[in-house]
Design a protein around this nucleic acid. Structure first.
Length: 118
DNA sequence: AGTGTGACAGATC
DNA sequence: CGATCTGCCACAC
């Protein structure tokens, strides 16, 4: 049907897509904003992914602690609660974090576009 | 309806 | 090799 204005999926914004991919991240692995953005269609949406993660604070069903920037740095650590720091959550999954930076980032890196064999 | 903003990424100097 | 600047698209006001 040629009626995009009445598309039922319009109710699901990009944020939902980001949350969906974030939920697919296996335990003990991490992903990057650009990887998720690229999986959604374009790496340029990386900022939107980060923006979406900003609202993840209200969503406890989204492992935002498994999402870091392309450098493997816990960019959004400051947005996490001091009682439940991002570094602690990652370390609890076996990920080594030093100086707000993930060690062996390439080893724990999880790319949806590759793992999901899109 | 337009403006501002942002948990990024990549390129350049 | 590190620091700096721009581009970028979706959401909130």
């Amino acid at each position: 049907m040629s009626n995009p204005k009445s598309s039922p999926q319009d109710k699901f914004s990009f944020f939902e897509d980001v949350y969906a991919v974030a939920r697919l991240i296996p335990r003990g692995r991490v992903s990057s904003y650009g990887a998720i953005a690229r999986y959604l269609g374009n790496v340029r949406k990386a900022r939107i992914v980060g923006y979406a993660m900003n609202g993840c604070s209200a969503r406890h069903d989204v492992p935002a602690h498994r999402v870091v920037n392309s450098q493997g740095i816990l960019s959004g650590k400051s947005h996490f609660s001091p009682d439940n720091p991002m570094e602690e959550a990652l370390r609890a999954e076996g990920i080594v974090v030093v100086g707000d930076k993930i060690q062996d980032f390439a080893r724990v890196f999880w790319d949806p576009g590759v793992e999901l064999a899109l």
